[in-house]
Design a protein around this nucleic acid. Structure first.
Length: 429
RNA sequence: GGCGCCUUGGCCGAGUGGUUAGGCAGCGGCCUGCAAAGCCGUUUACAGCAGUUCGAAUCUGCUAGGCGCCUCCA
């Protein structure tokens, strides 16, 4: 399998199966309900793990929770830890309801502070970082490759994060921030005094704590390339660690013409979207676009995804056909080529229209959509109504039969007539 | 100002030199008491201009438009 790598800007071949594929995908900062854009890296990460496992790899997914951050302090003055814990719960609940299972590990920054402190100490010892006034900064000038991941030229980078007189260079970034008692109600003791980790160092520390100094794939949103991931590589490679082999950045989800983001305010939460459209439509929606490209979220695109979901599900109410086992190779080939889910979706539709139901079921399973193959059993009262309708139709009492059909619809069941008084009951969504 | 991505038919979205992507929607038909589902048929393409080539949606250049990052951001 090959995947597009941001660092080399090319398709990179994965080591051949079987073997370990260790994936680290950046997770959310927990201070509010996550929006549907936040779900994209999660979904892609889970699908990738699923596909890699299906093709013989020992794939592991680590997805971090950033529960130390200015946003959290700002959103809950004096009660940041409580908000972070609550929002972590929401995130686990919302992503859990996508029905894709859970990552292998979900490390939290607050539980990794000792590893982070240790990492910073090593950077100071090696001359790549320096302590100043209770803060610790990474010395960007000490790492010649800085800017290579994002393609930034150092002399063109605008002023870095918040300017500070303590920095040697304005582009240096904080690894450790001294506690500000007025606004920051959580802190940890460190060799540099009370404080808390910077954002970028947590990922380097947690990824390496779990995977060691080298792993195969690092994922996250395209908006994290600079400065977040640039800083991560700098920290880890400054210590001589290979770090990630492939940088897999997913495209942004757009809503109302621009990136969905809390700061713009054009958000729909995962919760709302699941409630309105159902998990299967949400997953089909993500399937329709290449993982690297932007995807437009709108009532129209969601409705189309829901219609496709129905087409796929309806296939299981029809008669199956002979299986063409060779068909699987086509499906595998498109996924192995940069995880082309739109092409895979076309294959699923092909199987749906030709009645290759066993292949279709297997294909859907890769994406957590095997539920589309399940036929819900109608409760006795629904079957009773259906039988009454069969009788009414036999008696050519169409007024009654139409009324019964409406009644079934109101109970969430669609009745499809078939020749000879037979019928199929399908659960509406 | 710097770095990068994108522009395919009503909508979404594949396709990297010569062959129907696929889906949704539309239209006509079959089926049905009427529907639904399904099936058959069918309309609308490659932003613009110039170039390379026997031949370009596919390569090159320019123009126009859109998006992301450079500040927290999946």
């Amino acid at each position: 399998m090959r995947l597009y790598d941001t660092y080399t800007r090319s398709l990179v071949e994965l080591p051949s199966a079987p073997g370990p594929i260790r994936m680290y995908v950046c997770g959310p900062t927990v201070y509010a309900r996550a929006h549907i854009g936040n779900a994209r890296p999660f979904v892609i990460g889970m699908w990738l793990r699923s596909w890699l496992r299906a093709t013989g790899y020992d794939a592991q997914l680590v997805h971090n929770i950033t529960d130390i951050n200015d946003k959290i302090y700002d959103a809950a003055p004096g009660a940041s830890a409580g908000l972070a814990a609550r929002a972590t719960g929401w995130y686990l609940e919302d992503t859990g309801d996508l029905g894709l299972g859970m990552p292998d590990r979900l490390p939290k920054a607050t539980e990794s502070v000792p590893q982070i402190v240790h990492f910073i100490e090593e950077l100071i010892e090696s001359g790549h970082a320096y302590a100043a006034g209770g803060d610790v900064y990474f010395r960007v000038a000490s790492f010649p490759d800085y800017g290579r991941l994002s393609g930034q030229k150092l002399d063109q980078v605008e002023q870095g994060e918040e300017p500070s007189a303590l920095k040697e260079d304005p582009r240096d970034f904080a690894l450790w921030k001294a506690n500000k008692p007025a606004t920051e109600d959580t802190w940890w003791d460190s060799p540099w005094g009370r404080g808390r980790p910077g954002w970028h160092i947590e990922c380097s520390a947690m990824a390496e704590e779990i995977f060691g100094p080298a792993f195969e794939i690092h994922g996250g949103g395209l908006d994290l390339v600079f400065p977040h991931h640039e800083n991560e590589v700098a920290q880890s490679r400054a210590l001589g660690h290979p770090f990630a082999q492939i940088w897999a950045h997913n495209g942004m989800l757009r809503f109302t013409g621009e990136k969905m983001s809390k700061s713009v305010g054009n958000v729909a939460t995962i919760r709302e979207t699941l409630d309105e459209w159902g998990r299967e439509a949400v997953l089909v929606f993500f399937l329709t676009a290449s993982w690297r490209k932007p995807i437009d979220f709108s009532p129209e695109t969601m409705a189309q995804a829901a219609a496709r979901r129905d087409t796929l599900r309806n296939a299981f109410t029809l008669a199956g056909a002979e299986h063409d086992e060779a068909g699987w190779a086509v499906f595998a080939a498109v996924l192995d080529d940069d995880f082309d889910t739109p092409a895979a979706l076309a294959v699923l539709h092909e199987w749906a229209s030709t009645g290759q139901l066993e292949l279709l079921r297997r294909g859907l399973q890769v994406f957590g959509l095997e539920s589309l193959a399940e036929r819900a059993e109608a409760p006795a009262e629904v079957v009773e109504l259906a039988e009454q309708r069969v009788a009414a139709r036999a008696a050519r009492d169409f007024e009654t039969s139409d009324r019964l059909r409406d009644e079934l619809g109101a109970r969430g069941w669609q009745m499809r007539d078939e020749p000879g008084g037979a019928y199929t009951l399908v659960r509406d969504t």
